[in-house]
């Protein structure tokens, strides 16, 4: 534990890099997910086809392989990116490809009837999207966005293998100097756990707030302990609205 206290500034620098890389990759992920999600749901045939190809390519292969490919092969074609940019792009685009399916699903969850009703009222396509479809679709996207944000955070630890000085990388360096793997890696695990938990809370809070406003799904009606027959509301009507 003393080693951690002694090297706190060094490790905090690493933590900062981890958070900073996560934030940048998050922006890339969101841009990718929305672009591909919209293309897959609203696009014409070529748009759907090509976005499907991108999604298949990035989801079919392994993130870690993609990372090394970008790191070692791209420079051989004269594309030289810093390790951080390489990592941010690969992680952001890959997770964005997964999240695109969530965006597409959320858009699909808003019924055609809603969009048609808006058009009949005379709203432009742009207004229909901004005022009718998105306000209903966004709340249902929050949960998947949260999951993939946590996934991104965890994946940034891989960037230590392409020489990004993140928290994992610094902890690893420290371990080479002082040993004591149990404490160092134990602390590292706890830090990641706390960060993931905090992100989980944040997104659940956002989701609750969004659904309270009445646009999202109602809070999940889980059946509690499976051991007892779950009690369903008796008559649907006023009791369920309570």
């Amino acid at each position: 534990m003393q080693h951690i206290v002694d090297n706190l500034p060094y490790l905090l620098d690493g933590l900062f890099v981890t958070l900073y890389v996560t934030a940048l990759a998050w922006l890339v992920m969101m841009a990718t997910a929305f672009a591909l999600g919209f293309a897959r749901y609203y696009g014409n045939r070529p748009a759907r086809w090509s976005s499907g190809l991108v999604v298949g390519l990035f989801r079919g292969t392994s993130t870690f392989v993609m990372l090394f490919w970008a790191f070692y092969v791209l420079p051989q074609f004269g594309v030289t990116l810093t390790p951080i940019v390489t990592g941010v792009l690969v992680l952001g685009i890959t997770e964005g490809c997964y999240l695109a399916e969530g965006v597409r699903g959320s858009l699909a969850s808003v019924t055609r009837g809603q969009a048609e009703a808006a058009r009949v009222l005379g709203l432009s396509p742009w207004q229909t999207m901004a005022r009718v479809v998105l306000p209903q679709a966004l709340p249902t996207m929050i949960a998947p966005i949260g999951n993939f944000t946590i996934a991104l955070l965890k994946f940034t630890s891989l960037l230590s293998f392409i020489s990004v000085q993140d928290l994992t990388s610094r902890m690893q360096s420290l371990r080479y100097q002082v040993g004591d793997s149990i404490v160092l890696f134990g602390v590292l695990l706890v830090v990641y756990y706390l960060l993931s938990t905090a992100l989980g809370w944040l997104f659940r809070y956002l989701e609750r707030r969004a659904s309270v406003r009445g646009t999202g799904r109602p809070p999940e009606a889980g059946h509690g302990a499976a051991a007892a027959p779950p009690v369903t509301e008796p008559t649907g009507g006023e009791v369920a609205l309570r």
Partner: peptide, 23 residues
């Protein structure tokens, strides 16, 4: 379960790889 899900696979694997011999 939450802990395993909330931490990176690579760090978990490191943990087993370096810690198991130590104990």
């Amino acid at each position: 379960v939450d802990f395993f899900r909330g931490t990176p696979l690579v760090v978990q694997v490191f943990f087993w790889f370096y810690v198991l011999p130590e104990i």
